[in-house]
Design a protein around this nucleic acid. Sequence first.
DNA 1: CGCTAGGTTGAGCTTTCTCAAAGCGAGTGG
DNA 2: CCACTCGCTTTGAGAAAGCTCAACCTAGCG
Lengths: 239, 239
Amino acid sequence: MATTKPYPGTSNTQPDRDLIRNNPYLKTLDNEAIDYLFQMGEIRNHPKGDVLIVQGEDPKYLFISLKGKIALVARRASGERTIVEMLPSGSMFLLSSVLLRLPYVASAEASTDMRILAIPVDAFMKGLELHHALALTTLNQMAGYVRLMASQVKQLKLQNASERLAHHILARCRKDHGAAILELDDERRVIAQRLGMTPESLSRSIAALKDAGVVFDQRTVRIDDVARLREYCGLEIID
Amino acid sequence: MATTKPYPGTSNTQPDRDLIRNNPYLKTLDNEAIDYLFQMGEIRNHPKGDVLIVQGEDPKYLFISLKGKIALVARRASGERTIVEMLPSGSMFLLSSVLLRLPYVASAEASTDMRILAIPVDAFMKGLELHHALALTTLNQMAGYVRLMASQVKQLKLQNASERLAHHILARCRKDHGAAILELDDERRVIAQRLGMTPESLSRSIAALKDAGVVFDQRTVRIDDVARLREYCGLEIID
DNA sequence: CGCTAGGTTGAGCTTTCTCAAAGCGAGTGG
DNA sequence: CCACTCGCTTTGAGAAAGCTCAACCTAGCG
């Protein structure tokens, strides 16, 4: 699978601890919980493109991304694939399968070079009992995933392709009115799969958003008026 | 909103306790946790059609359905509605919004007459700290919701209307091969909204499934060969 | 300077939606 | 007891959205 490098107890874990402490999704962990995770887990480095988890397999580890972006990929029996979600660093990805000890609902692929912490399922479950901070962080992450997934269901059922693209852009825009400019850091094919459309449709949606005051230049997006785009989008922005 | 009836401490809570103890999603709660919930919460009865929660409002209570079926309904600004999910009794619905103290992502409507337990958010959060069994049940419910939502995203992105209908039927069928017969307990309009299509499209999908060996007679569904239908459906069945 | 990979554009087709009309079944009043 | 009505479902025809396939464009790179 990839380079594996367990912590031999005496090695320097400080840089990785700092990654956890600085991560918005993990910073509620306390020292005891972090100690526990490093004690029970091992660090792995994966190059972009690596498949960390295969849909349908039984969970053996809980993975926490310390650095890099994960793509959750689902396939049908016939082979077609789609991206269920992109997850930033600090994610305990496919957590639900681990907690329920049920086969992974999706595969996890490294969308960038990654550094991850892998904790055996039993050790993780034990950690939930022993470390309150870990349980709370886990609870929060899962609540966030439910929101994310529920929001996506709403998008797929209530918005057309261009509106979903508008939503995608707005979710990456910190301003809530006036003009704005931002960078999309995925390639078109990836964005298209995440939004549930073909790259061709994404292209046409990009063209369509000109009428809503959005101009694309490579990966740079310029929005004339965020409030207007929100109106166009039609759904409140979640994530 | 509806008939409200708090527990005055001495009243008979036994029937409601039994509902909890017999419910597959709640039976891991222990007596202390159940005591706590009844002490802090109040019982409400709602007739079919009542709106228990309105999308966009701030969570004040965590609701647990003791009896009856909930429809999670989402709307766009322009008014169109869809059903995000149908939840059986024993559900802590819209849990994620409560845990994160963020506006509800969807409305909750009583799809049947309902009996629910409403616990103020602060009391519930406190309960998570005090009662380990409650925290575990909560964790499990949320993990289940993530799976459900992730599965639905897969369905919407990878399956066409007829395949989604096949999925819906298979999810309600306990057998995994041979012939089977089952009842759908929702009306067509509701099933259509849940599956992300119009009632007309659902009608046509019902007709289309004849070729896959599925016959509808009112709410009764007869499947010639479950394995064959699974193949037609193209995705593993989750829920 | 030509290749290659990613992105866009165009044409035709498939799926699903929309709108209108017809079918059907359960409950009601004559 | 029967015709009627109301609500839900199905069917049909046309329109719209999105997909497929093919051609073309463009930028980075050997």
